[in-house]
Design a protein around this nucleic acid. Structure first.
Length: 292
DNA sequence: AAGCACACCTGCTAGC
DNA sequence: TGCTAGCAGGTGTGCT
């Protein structure tokens, strides 16, 4: 499923193609892909004719800023969403739910087999003293998200997100209101890089472990973006040009149960955290009770 | 009020 | 070989 690195790859693909373009037409083939709007038709009518001024990202959400300022289209790829840039003459893939036609003749297609993806308008207040570290205001629909794991993460923010929490760390890392952008893949990889077991209570971290986790977060996400994201066998992530990512080749533990750890060759184990699964190297990420 | 269960949906896989 | 049942995933809601 697309997490922060995959969404950032798509953002970087779409930004030069959409910024400055006018949205000439929007076709919604599946109403479910447009949420929080009076209707799909109302959404299309409100966005048609407007100019894209930039494309941003908060966590796993894309933010298409429009002129005149004050409103943006927020897009979430869900579990299987893709944005594909194509010429109108080419056949549309199955599950093409929304098509944005641009004034330069190109189409941007929202393809989403599992239909967990969504898009909607959201007000954006002008940047002011209350805006984020980047000086960019968030759409109002995204103010509940925690700091962006790539652009807004500090040691202080991480400490605040975990202090006093009894929930297991793995789940806290994936809680978008604590930290925005991490899902199952990258929480596993960051925990491995920091040599911390995700089954620990979030509030049990010491200063050294927090430092390692913050550094691991920055490095893993940066490397994953450089490798253009992860495309697993049972997922279908592709970038704006239809190409898969390569970071899965570098995964240390995620989806590698029973395979040797890349660092120490100990067999990776799969663990359950409630309804979710995670992967861990028992040797590199020991449980506290097993520490010497 | 933190934390959990559940709904949403469809393609793939494991199991008969 | 063909079928079905179950799983997987992120977000939002609602319950305790």
């Amino acid at each position: 499923m697309p997490e922060l690195p995959e969404v950032e790859v798509v953002r970087r693909d779409l930004d030069p193609l959409l910024t400055g373009r006018t949205i000439a037409r929007i076709d919604v083939n599946r109403d479910r892909s447009v949420r929080r709007e009076p209707s799909a038709a109302a959404f299309a009518a409100a966005v048609t004719g407007r100019v894209v001024t930039s494309i941003g990202r908060v966590g796993k959400f894309l933010v298409v800023h429009l002129a005149p300022p004050g409103e943006a289209v927020v897009v979430h790829l869900g579990m299987s969403g893709q944005w594909r840039v194509a010429d109108p003459g080419t056949p549309r893939p199955a599950h093409t739910h929304v098509v944005w036609s641009l004034d330069d003749g190109r189409e941007v297609r929202f393809v989403d087999p599992r239909t967990f993806g969504q898009m909607f308008r959201s007000p954006v207040r002008p940047a002011d003293g209350a805006s984020g570290p980047l000086g960019v205001s968030r759409p109002e629909a995204l103010v509940h998200l925690g700091p962006d794991a790539l652009t807004e993460l500090t040691r202080e923010a991480f400490a605040a997100a975990t202090a006093g929490r009894r929930v297991v760390l793995k789940r806290r890392l994936m809680d978008q209101t604590a930290l925005a952008g991490l899902g199952n893949i990258y929480s596993d990889e960051i925990l491995f890089r920091a040599a911390v077991a995700g089954s620990r209570p979030a509030g049990s971290l010491d200063a050294s472990e927090i430092e390692h986790l913050v550094v691991a977060c920055e490095r893993v996400l940066t490397e994953a973006i450089a490798a253009r994201g992860s495309t697993l066998s049972d997922e279908q992530f592709v970038d704006g040009h239809g190409r898969p990512g390569r970071y899965q080749e570098q995964h240390a533990v995620h989806a590698r149960a029973g395979l040797p750890c890349r660092r120490c060759a100990t067999l990776v184990v799969r663990e359950r955290y409630g309804a979710r699964s995670g992967y861990r190297c028992p040797s590199c990420q020991p449980l506290p009770s097993l520490r010497s």
